[in-house]
Design a protein around this nucleic acid. Structure first.
Lengths: 333, 333
DNA sequence: TTGAAAGCGCTAACAG
DNA sequence: CTGTTAGCGCTTTCAA
């Protein structure tokens, strides 16, 4: 017969002090005698006491949970290497503070409405945003909710209001582009991501900053971070810019699609066309040839993101961080 | 100045009824006059009232949250197509019942301990397990916690105690193997998953059930569901069984690794060796050649899993479900 | 340093 | 059908 869950009263009784003292021990407050503290700790482990969060939350009006809001459509999310890393890091770091991670998907009106209600209901102490687009309607609800938010990857246009940790997208793109140039490529095209994401616009900026005024409209096409989109984009690029000898693709997944398109068009890689990707995700070693790509320090990004949020919850001042990338040379360029 | 969040009292006042009646309306109970109900609904939207879950939870001792426990190591989880689908479906379905999804990672001692504490603390109304291994120490903690649990994919050895929804792994493996046989392949090897997972043992059973006593030890090697593992396994298989003309691989990711190994060994696919995968995950179309593979109805599996859990929470009787797979023929076999 | 006591906002049992 | 009421388990004054 499973006994009823012990409450703080049981602990108080077992340790011979009052509820108040137990609470003080539990919350690590100073004004407690060593004897009392020891007695309480013993009683806690004897009784198997675990704090009732609902009761605590009712009293403190803090919930002990953080929402991670996913506003990407499904396909992208799934392929997003940021995602799983961030999730793991966040879960672990938050657990250390006895907080938990609630997941919400907000890629349609209903989802956004739910998130807004959730925040309005005060059900979360903080918000973790991941690859959020510049014009996401959710951002307004988030601001209105007054709940502290941080982002993994900058939220374009809100860089100053939503602290973030991110890779140096511009620098990484520059690395890849310079590498292509150094290898003697002269007619370099690019497939970008959606321009309302940092990976979309900043990686394009990095690309054009290297090539300067040599970049023309026909050399750049826009993709959507999906593999099929990358394939289509590559076809378009080949049409607009048939004699290209290299392409920088803003994500590995799109690069995999581009590889297929090149293959279908009878171009050899890297012989005819060199291909460089971005992310260094799992797929980069699954393609043939394997992708030369730009690695982001995902672990660090994730850790920093969570660190920012925790600092924010503690009402400390926070500063966004941008982390360096690394070019990983494989076979495709 | 953001006003304090309205409580049920504010709604009661605004609608001219008592707290009790408001609560009844909110919880959809029958004994309420139409007039009262209307007044309450109006007051709710006027005041912007959102229920305080902590208070409700304190009273009802239900928490309104479900934990999704991930016990896979990182790499696998990330590549697991089940995962994102299940997450999305779960989030949506649960949101309809005003419940939320809490994520916990339990792939080491610390993680398991946290999950156990969380459950002991009564912080969750239900548990969603995903690709849990047979001997996972967490299972004991889960059973002890008495919290209703369901699994996405059977938990070997607990099929009768933890309801699940899953693809027909055995049948799918049979489909793939029969297809290879039908294409005239005679020397067929297999790379399995870990045998303490249903995808590991059942897919192997399907394979051997087709080939019967023709299967020998040297034709089967065991992988770990990673790409690198698939590559290693293929090398071992080529060593043990050099004249094979086909291989059935228990996951697409491992199949991608196998493709690399075959390529390195100078075997053409499907010319020298036909390759069939399992999952029909994103990577199946990213390889060259693209993978012939077995598709699992992930959406349905996820939906069914969540449906089972909800039924369990409602104290209905539940029955595990096994869903049919489909062979997707592409280029590799 | 500690105990006593007042609620946090809600639901459900009871009385009407 | 509806109002009243008694807590759920906890934190946090306030006194001592």
């Amino acid at each position: 017969m499973p006994r009823k869950r012990p409450t703080i009263n049981d602990v108080a009784q077992a340790s011979g002090v009052s509820r108040g003292t137990v609470s003080r021990v539990l919350n690590g407050q100073a004004n407690v005698s060593l004897a009392a503290e020891l007695a309480v700790r013993r009683a806690v482990s004897e009784t198997g006491y675990v704090v009732n969060r609902a009761a605590r939350s009712l009293k403190t009006s803090r919930t002990g949970s953080i929402v991670m809001v996913l506003s990407e459509p499904q396909e992208r999310l799934f392929e997003d290497p940021n995602f799983s890393v961030l999730m793991r890091v966040a879960t672990n770091q938050l657990a250390e503070r006895d907080m938990s991670l609630v997941l919400m998907i907000a890629d349609d009106v209903g989802g956004r409405e739910r998130v807004a209600r959730y925040l309005r209901g005060g059900h979360a102490d903080g918000i973790l945003l991941i690859s959020t687009h510049a014009d996401d309607p959710l951002l307004e609800a988030i601001e209105r909710s007054q709940v502290p938010a941080v982002a993994c990857g900058a939220v374009l246009g809100r860089e100053s209001v939503i602290p973030y940790a991110a890779a140096d997208d511009r620098g990484g793109a520059r690395q890849a582009t310079e590498y292509l140039v150094d290898r003697g490529r002269r007619r370099i095209g690019m497939i970008t991501g959606p321009l309302d994401t940092p990976g979309g616009s900043l990686r394009m900026e990095g690309f054009t900053s290297v090539l300067g005024r040599k970049v023309t409209k026909r050399m750049v096409v826009h993709g959507d971070y999906t593999q099929a989109g990358g394939e289509r984009a590559m076809h378009r690029l080949l049409e607009a810019f048939p004699n290209l000898d290299a392409v920088f693709v803003a994500s590995d997944l799109m690069a995999a699609g581009a590889l297929q398109a090149l293959h279908a068009a009878g171009r050899s890689v890297p012989g005819d066309v060199a291909v460089a990707g971005f992310d260094d995700s799992a797929i980069a070693t699954a393609t043939n040839p394997m992708l030369t790509t730009v690695r982001q320090p995902l672990d660090t990004i994730a850790e920093e993101t969570v660190r920012l949020l925790i600092a924010l919850l503690d009402e400390q001042d926070v500063q966004s961080v941008v982390l360096p990338t690394e070019l990983i040379v494989r076979e495709s360029a």
